[in-house]
Amino acid sequence: MSRSSRPVRFAAAFLAVSCADLPVRAEDMPVIKVEMRDGVILPATIEVPANTRFKLEISNTGQSPVEFESTELKREKALAAGSTSSIVFRTLDPGTYQVFDDFHPEAKATLVAK
């Protein structure tokens, strides 16, 4: 290895290692939108990327409060009527996860990570 190529190789190695630990910015994450409305969750099948950080944006378009919940995912989020909130998931293994509205037990959906 010539002396002149050492700084270039060092810089490339340094960048590769230092960039590997950078956090994913919110604008770089996929955003999956879910609507909850007085006992209905739309879509009924929520498709999300597996093994990838993503944001689930939940909007309550109904007249009553809702609570997005999943016992399998250990996540819950209560929303007042007319509000929107988000849950960031670090990663999910491929699979199927059940979600429901704790305030409207008939409202169920399936989150599919693939």
Score class of each variant (00 low, 15 high):
Leu15Glu: 13
Leu15Arg: 14
Ser18Met: 12
Ser18His: 09
Cys19Pro: 06
Ala20Gly: 09
Leu22Asp: 07
Leu22Met: 14
Pro23Tyr: 13
Glu27Lys: 13
Val31Pro: 09
Val31Met: 10
Lys33Trp: 10
Val34Lys: 10
Glu35His: 04
Met36Tyr: 08
Asp38Gly: 02
Asp38Val: 04
Gly39Lys: 02
Leu42His: 07
Thr45Gly: 11
Thr45His: 12
Ile46Glu: 07
Val48Asp: 14
Val48Gly: 11
Val48Phe: 13
Pro49Glu: 10
Ala50Trp: 07
Asn51Gly: 04
Asn51His: 11
Thr52Lys: 15
Phe54Tyr: 07
Lys55Phe: 05
Lys55Thr: 15
Glu57Met: 12
Glu57Val: 12
Ile58Ala: 03
Ser59Phe: 09
Ser59Glu: 15
Asn60Leu: 05
Thr61Ser: 15
Thr61Gly: 15
Gly62Arg: 10
Gly62Ile: 06
Ser64Met: 06
Ser64Pro: 00
Pro65Arg: 05
Val66Asp: 00
Val66Gly: 00
Glu67Asp: 08
Glu69Phe: 00
Glu69His: 01
Ser70Ile: 01
Thr71Arg: 13
Glu72His: 03
Glu72Thr: 04
Glu72Asn: 04
Glu72Trp: 02
Glu72Lys: 04
Leu73Ser: 10
Leu73Cys: 08
Leu73Gly: 06
Lys74Leu: 06
Arg75Tyr: 05
Glu76Thr: 03
Lys77Gly: 00
Lys77Gln: 02
Ala78Leu: 03
Ala78Gly: 04
Leu79Glu: 07
Leu79Ile: 13
Ala80Lys: 15
Ala80Pro: 10
Ala81Glu: 12
Ala81Pro: 14
Ser83His: 11
Thr84Arg: 12
Ser85Ala: 14
Ser86Ile: 09
Ser86Gln: 14
Ser86Glu: 14
Val88Ile: 15
Phe89Ile: 04
Arg90Trp: 07
Thr91Trp: 05
Leu92Cys: 10
Leu92Met: 07
Asp93Trp: 06
Pro94Cys: 02
Gly95Trp: 06
Gly95Pro: 07
Thr96Tyr: 08
Tyr97Cys: 01
Gln98Ala: 06
Phe100Trp: 11
Asp101Tyr: 01
His104Ala: 02
His104Leu: 01
His104Ser: 00
Pro105Tyr: 00
Pro105Ser: 07
Glu106His: 01
Ala107Tyr: 02
Ala107Leu: 07
